[in-house]
Amino acid sequence: MKADPATQRRLLDLADVDTELNRVAYSRTNLPEHAEIDESEDTVRTRQDAQVVAETALSDLRRELARQEKEIDQVRARGKRDRELLDAGTVGARQVVDLQHELDTLTRRQGVLEDELLEVMERAEAAETDVRFAEDRLAESREALAVVTRRRDELLADLGTQESRHAERRATLTNGLPADLLALYERIRAQKGNGAALLRARRCGACRLELDRVAVSKLKAADPSEVVRCDECGVILVRTVESGL
């Protein structure tokens, strides 16, 4: 295959652009923010679970409070009824004894229930503190996630701008290149990661290996328009005054 030496030199610019495009693609995939976001999302999920646990505990205690308050109200109502019967003086002596005994029992029961209610109220107060703490922790983790997400999005936007600029430059460089030369370049790039490199001081710019005497002799004898390749890595070798031939 033959191509004008000036056209071959355009492959070096194309290779530089492709290197930049590869760098952008690598950066997009390997931003540290991706890992930070994963970690932040894990933290958010963990703290969401902790909040649910705290809220569930508080809800259970509130139900227990409501149950105990209802039971205390029932005991008080029963005691009030018994006292009213005693005060009315309409019951017999035996019933008076029974009512008084029941009142004593209800009084003791009310005292026990009120002590238990106080304990549950204290536990509920502590549970409310736990819920507020869990809510604050969750809010902190969500804000941290939002911050790193914004930073990632800004970086991705910048990389997108770079990619667009390089893609436009690439389109300009490939426009007008001989179809067979471009096809060869693209095929080598797909296989090797690099399609063309400068031969400088008898050393391949892609694999960095110095050409042996046989290869140098062949290149010296080759027509300047001949498209040549590195015997070691297979890329198109672009010859210039820097090649040392």
Rank of each mutant, 00 (worst) to 15 (best):
D231I: 10
L61G: 07
V241L: 15
E125K: 06
L65A: 00
V97C: 08
A201C: 02
V131F: 02
R94N: 13
D42F: 12
R23E: 13
A3E: 06
N30L: 01
D49F: 07
A54V: 02
R229V: 14
L199W: 03
L21R: 00
P32I: 08
S27L: 14
D158N: 12
R10T: 00
A221F: 08
A171C: 09
D115A: 06
Y185S: 08
R83Y: 00
R10H: 06
G160Q: 04
V228E: 07
S27E: 15
K218V: 15
Q162A: 14
H166Q: 15
V53C: 07
Q162E: 15
D60C: 10
T149C: 11
S243C: 05
A157Q: 14
E125W: 07
T149R: 09
A206T: 05
T174D: 10
T174Y: 09
V120G: 01
S40C: 14
D49A: 14
G244I: 03
V96A: 04
F133T: 03
L155P: 03
L219G: 05
D16H: 10
G195P: 01
S40W: 12
C233V: 00
R132E: 06
A179C: 09
R28K: 15
T56L: 04
E71N: 11
L61A: 07
V235Y: 01
G79I: 01
L173C: 09
K220Y: 02
E71C: 08
E39G: 02
R28G: 03
A15S: 15
T149G: 09
R76V: 15
T43P: 08
T149V: 10
D158F: 11
E186P: 03
Q74E: 15
E140A: 08
R23K: 11
N30I: 08
P224M: 06
L156F: 10
T29E: 14
K2N: 06
V147R: 13
R23V: 09
A222Y: 07
C207M: 04
V235Q: 02
L21P: 01
A126E: 05
R63S: 14
Q48E: 14
R189S: 04
T240S: 15
V52T: 09
R108F: 07
A146E: 14
D16I: 09
A134I: 00
T43G: 10
Q95P: 08
E55F: 01
Q100P: 00
R137W: 02
A127W: 02
N194M: 07
Q74H: 09
R170W: 09
R23Q: 12
R108K: 15
V96D: 02
